[in-house]
C-alpha cells in the first residue's frame, strides 16, 4: 500500500544492530498500511516484528543501529523527524501499547495524572481540562467506576485494568497510528479476549490505523483485517486475514497454522516444522526458511526467493507461491 491514502509506507527497510556479533534484524522489509486499517504482524521470537514497531517510533539506539530504506508515516519521513517534532510525533501522531503495562506505567503517579500529563504535553490545556480528558478516556476503555480509578496507583489495579489504562494513555492524544506490541500476551485467557474486543471497538470509534504485533495466530484473527507473516526479518506472506487463514501459500505460514493445534486430532503426530530460526548474524542471501522447509529445492538455497504478487496487496516470498498447495 502506498500513495496518498496510505498511513504507513515502509520501503526496503534493513536494520542491523552492531555489536560483538552483528544482528541483521530486518532485511529488506516493505510494508504498507492504509488509514484506519488493522494489520497483524505475525511471527516468532526474533523474527523482527517488535524491531519494526520500535523503528517506526524511532526507539532504537541510534549509535548501535544501522538503518537503510525509508519509512513514511502519513507522508512524513520518519527518519528525518528531530527535536520537538519527534516529541509531538511520539504519542501525538503514533502511539504504542506494550506487553507489560506494569512496567510501562510510572509506579509513583496516579493513573489519572499520567494520562493528564501526556495530554498537557501535546495540547495547550489546563490541568483540569487534561484531567477531564483522562476521565473521558478511562470511560472509553470501559473501566468500571472511572472517577475512582483516576486516583489509583498502578499497583492497585489488576493486569487487565492496567492494560486498559495503557490503552487510554496511548489514545489520549488521538494518534492516527497505534502500535501494539503483544499487548495481551501477559494476560489470562478470559481477560485477553476482553482487551482484544476493546481494541477492535476503539479502532472503529477512533478510526486509527493499528499495527498489532503477535506470535499467536488466534489473536491475529480476532483483531486484524490483514496479516503480514514475518520470518528472519522479512515479510514472507501478506494478505487479508481471510486469505492467510483459509489459503496460506508460504510453507512457513502453513506450518504455523498446523502448530496452532486448533482442531488437531488427539494422538496424531503433529506436523511440526523441524529445526529453529536462523541466527541472523549474516544477512540472508537465500531463502531463510529453506533449511526447515519440506519443499525446499536447490534454487531456494541459492538465492533469495522472488516475491510473487498473487493478488492486489497479496504477496508471497516463495518459489512455490504460484502453485496452489493442498491444505496442510
Amino acid at each position: 500500500m502506498s500513495g496518498p491514502g496510505s498511513l504507513v509506507d515502509i520501503r526496503n527497510l534493513s536494520i542491523r544492530f552492531r555489536g560483538a556479533r552483528d544482528v541483521h534484524a530486518i532485511n529488506d522489509l516493505t510494508l504498507g498500511l492504509a488509514q484506519g486499517e488493522t494489520l497483524a504482524l505475525l511471527g516468532e521470537s526474533g523474527s523482527g516484528k517488535s524491531v519494526t514497531l520500535k523503528a517506526l517510533l524511532r526507539l532504537l539506539p541510534p549509535r548501535r543501529t544501522d538503518i537503510e530504506g525509508t519509512m513514511k508515516v502519513n507522508g512524513a519521513d520518519v527518519m528525518s523527524i528531530t527535536g520537538r517534532a519527534l516529541q509531538t510525533y511520539r504519542g501525538g501522531e503514533v502511539s504504542m501499547v506494550f506487553q507489560e503495562p506494569g512496567l510501562a506505567l510510572d509506579p509513583v503517579y496516579t493513573v489519572g495524572r499520567q494520562i493528564a500529563e501526556a495530554v498537557q504535553r501535546k495540547k495547550r490545556v489546563s490541568r483540569d481540562e487534561a484531567m477531564s480528558t483522562a476521565l473521558d478516556m478511562l470511560r472509553r476503555v470501559r473501566i468500571p467506576s472511572p472517577e475512582r480509578r483516576l486516583s489509583n496507583y498502578p499497583h492497585e489495579l489488576s493486569g487487565g485494568m492496567l492494560q486498559r489504562v495503557m490503552i487510554a494513555l496511548a489514545l489520549a492524544c488521538r494518534p492516527r497510528l497505534l502500535l501494539a506490541d503483544e499487548p495481551t500476551t501477559a494476560l489470562d485467557a478470559t481477560v485477553q479476549i476482553q482487551i482484544l474486543l476493546l481494541l477492535r471497538a476503539l479502532q472503529k470509534e477512533f478510526g486509527m490505523g493499528v499495527i498489532f504485533v503477535t506470535h499467536d495466530i488466534g489473536v491475529a484473527v480476532e483483531v486484524s483485517e490483514r496479516i503480514a507473516v514475518m520470518y528472519a526479518g522479512q515479510i514472507v506472506e501478506e494478505g487479508t486475514t481471510h486469505e492467510i487463514i483459509k489459503s496460506p501459500r508460504h510453507p512457513y505460514t502453513r506450518g504455523l497454522l498446523a502448530a496452532n493445534l486448533h482442531d488437531v486430532a488427539r494422538g496424531t503426530r503433529l506436523d511440526a516444522i523441524p529445526g529453529a530460526p536462523p541466527p541472523l548474524d549474516v544477512k540472508p542471501d537465500a531463502c531463510p526458511f529453506a533449511p526447515r522447509c519440506p519443499l525446499a529445492e536447490a534454487r531456494c538455497r541459492a538465492a533469495l526467493p522472488p516475491v510473487h504478487q498473487i493478488g492486489p496487496r497479496r504477496r508471497v516470498a516463495c518459489i512455490h507461491a504460484d502453485a496452489p498447495m493442498e491444505a496442510a
Partner: peptide, 20 residues
C-alpha cells in the same frame, strides 16, 4: 475465551468481564 480461528466468525462478546 479461546480465539475462534475463523475470520468469518469472530468472537463478538467477551464471555466474562473483569479479572479473576
Amino acid at each position: 475465551a479461546m480465539p475462534s480461528m475463523d475470520p468469518d466468525n469472530r468472537t463478538e462478546e467477551p464471555p466474562l468481564t473483569g479479572d479473576p
